[in-house]
Design a protein around this nucleic acid. Structure first.
Length: 258
DNA sequence: ATGACCCCCCTGGGGGGA
């Protein structure tokens, strides 16, 4: 099972880029973040014609997540429990056989300190509560998406310049580690212990040609899926194309259940 | 890490991203 995650920074602006990449990569499941449209405005037909089902959880202008899949999911759930007043579309889950695939767009949290940072930490606590529930059910699952956290300094092109940033601040890293310490495996780092690579390059200041990137898009696997982890790779190619998103896809392959 | 971008709103510029 090949699962990909990509923050597309508007699915409408990225339609040609995204469909080109799907044709090449043919993931079984594609998790999208920042679709930036309401569900009715998602270009469903274009992906259906490529053989994908679309389940979008969007909102006007901002945020928005989606699950695209070649197989029909058994169930789809949206929203993260723990804050009924939270109107931001940032979370979706879909069940495929015995595996639950969770797609997420974690709040950026800047400026920090402030209410946006408090929202980020609260959201991370809610995500951790959901992970704990799925672990208690002993359900094989993965949580993938734009975490807006650089786990270590090696995941940042300029750790000193970013030390105060919400993506790197100790409370953000602590909350990320706390999630891992439930017993989850960060797939890319597990397979590439000393590698330096990124999933995001700012549009500004020549960040892409200078390789001034951040590694903020991650796959976290439950123990059952960590045992079946085959590969996890970042595909830089889409970032170098015309009308690119500022993020590039990350792809994780999970072996069939024994 | 903002001089330097891009996308959203829907037209003149503000909000947001990371």
């Amino acid at each position: 099972m090949k699962i990909a995650s990509w923050n597309v920074n508007s699915i409408k602006a990225r339609l040609a880029n995204a469909t080109d990449w799907v044709r090449e990569a043919r993931p079984d499941v594609l998790l999208l973040q920042e679709i930036k449209c309401q569900d009715a405005d998602f270009p469903v037909l274009e992906f259906q014609s490529l053989g994908y089902q679309v389940h979008a959880h969007g909102q006007k202008s901002y945020n928005g997540v989606a699950v695209l899949s070649r197989e029909k999911p058994d169930a789809v759930r949206t929203r993260l429990a723990g804050d009924d007043a939270d109107e931001q579309s940032r979370y979706i889950e879909a069940d495929f056989g015995g595996v639950t695939v969770c797609g997420l767009y974690l709040p950026n949290g800047n400026p920090r300190p402030g209410e946006k940072y408090d929202y980020k930490l609260g959201w991370m606590r809610r995500l951790q509560a959901r992970a704990a529930e799925l672990l208690a059910e002993e359900r094989p699952f993965l949580m993938a998406g734009d975490y807006n956290v650089c786990p270590l300094d090696v995941d940042v092109f300029d750790p000193i310049g970013f030390a105060e940033d919400a993506l790197c601040w100790p409370d953000s890293r602590r909350a990320f580690r706390s999630l891992l310490n439930l017993g989850l495996t960060e797939a890319w780092r597990a397979l590439h212990p000393t590698k330096v690579d990124y999933t995001f390059w700012d549009y500004q200041a020549g960040a892409w040609p200078k390789n001034n990137g951040l590694r903020i898009d991650h796959f976290l696997l439950s123990p059952q899926l960590a045992d079946r982890l085959v590969s996890c790779e970042i595909d830089r190619n889409p970032r170098g194309r015309e009308k690119a998103s500022d993020h590039t896809p990350i792809i994780c392959e999970i072996a069939a259940a024994a």
